[in-house]
Computed example of a mutant assay.
Amino acid sequence: MSTIYRSEAGAHEIRRRYQDVLDGWPVPAEQVRVPTREGETFVLVSGPEDAPPLLLLHGSGANTTMWRDDIASWAGHFRTYALDLIGEPGFSAPSRPPLASDAHARWLDEVLEGLGIGATSVVGTSLGGWMALDYATRRPERVTRLALLCPGGIGRQKTAFLFKALLLRPLGDWGKRRSVQVGTGLYAPEDRPVLDQVALIFGQFRPRTERLPVFSYDRLRRLTMPVQVTVGGRDAIFDSRDTLRRVRQCVPHATADLLPEVGHAILGRTEAVLAFLTR
């Protein structure tokens, strides 16, 4: 059993539900597995073969299903490549090289080479936003546009949420669900399917405990490509206002938006991101 899961039965259930979503994917898709030094990487490919590439990097405790509501729109304009990040609850290898190294950039180099991609637009959220930033600051020539949703590595990472989650988890299923609500900011009835999926995963999955390295001012100033940053004013995990302050200081050409009533999970931004990517 991989150490990223709490049990083999839990891992099996997560994978089973994942496959069910893939079987009902809203657009035609090809499932590709790319060999890398970190192990195999699963990629879900959609959109016209001759369209410009778009790389999608999901957040912690997630997989390519995060993009289900976006993909029909984006795949109409791009050849989309939704990656399962290594070390997360998808079909990629469970490898977790140190974040404070160039290991993830080298991994993405191999993935892009395996897919035959030279340069690409990138959309990343949370941990995937951190990986997108890490790659874009190390390989700016390979990133044509960068759209970030509640990205890690810019603003201060909060710790109060972790203490709340530890206090709530012993309170049974209600406590576990409540801790997920606090972390994601999803409370509306229409968010229930997403909330259920996140609760299932974090009940059986061991997330990374390594704090995300914060990018220096010099690293952020390497972002010369068009950049869009969207954050939630009620994000319980990252300090959104600190994120915007540093973006505006280091990347003055970036489009930076604060959604005051939104938490860490930013949903429903399909068309806003598409407008930026096709500008």
Rank of each mutant, 00 (worst) to 15 (best):
126 S>Q: 04
239 D>A: 15
12 H>V: 15
192 R>K: 11
12 H>A: 15
172 G>T: 05
193 P>A: 12
104 H>Q: 12
100 A>K: 14
4 I>E: 03
269 R>T: 07
174 W>Y: 10
239 D>Q: 09
162 L>F: 13
19 Q>D: 15
74 W>I: 07
229 V>S: 01
30 E>Y: 03
35 P>E: 02
10 G>K: 01
93 A>S: 15
230 T>D: 04
190 E>F: 02
217 Y>G: 00
121 S>Y: 08
84 D>E: 09
4 I>P: 01
7 S>N: 10
14 I>P: 10
77 H>Q: 14
152 G>R: 02
118 G>H: 04
233 G>W: 01
133 L>C: 07
170 P>I: 08
47 G>K: 08
256 A>P: 11
237 I>D: 00
165 A>T: 00
4 I>W: 01
162 L>Y: 13
119 A>F: 00
49 E>V: 13
172 G>L: 08
259 L>K: 10
228 Q>A: 03
110 E>Q: 14
253 H>N: 09
10 G>I: 06
203 G>Y: 05
34 V>T: 08
150 C>W: 00
76 G>K: 09
76 G>R: 10
218 D>E: 10
122 V>E: 08
60 S>M: 07
89 P>C: 03
80 T>M: 04
159 T>Y: 07
275 A>W: 12
150 C>N: 11
15 R>V: 12
214 V>T: 15
152 G>Q: 06
156 R>Q: 14
181 Q>Y: 03
196 D>I: 00
114 G>C: 05
31 Q>Y: 07
124 G>D: 05
275 A>G: 14
121 S>L: 04
72 A>Q: 05
191 D>V: 03
238 F>H: 11
176 K>E: 11
56 L>Y: 04
173 D>T: 14
186 L>H: 07
52 P>N: 08
43 V>K: 14
204 Q>R: 14
97 P>N: 06
195 L>A: 12
136 A>E: 02
194 V>Q: 08
13 E>M: 11
185 G>Q: 07
170 P>L: 07
142 R>M: 06
106 R>M: 08
125 T>M: 09
204 Q>M: 11
263 G>F: 13
19 Q>P: 05
67 W>L: 06
264 H>W: 06
220 L>H: 10
229 V>P: 04
98 P>Y: 00
124 G>R: 07
232 G>L: 12
78 F>P: 03
118 G>S: 05
38 E>R: 03
141 E>V: 04
54 L>S: 09
33 R>W: 06
268 G>F: 11
201 I>N: 00
174 W>L: 12
247 V>R: 06
279 R>V: 04
70 D>M: 09
156 R>A: 15
181 Q>K: 01
168 L>D: 09
85 L>D: 02
256 A>T: 08
74 W>C: 06
101 S>E: 01
219 R>W: 00
105 A>V: 15
162 L>M: 13
12 H>K: 14
172 G>P: 01
31 Q>M: 07
70 D>K: 07
93 A>V: 06
230 T>S: 05
198 V>L: 14
32 V>P: 01
273 V>H: 02
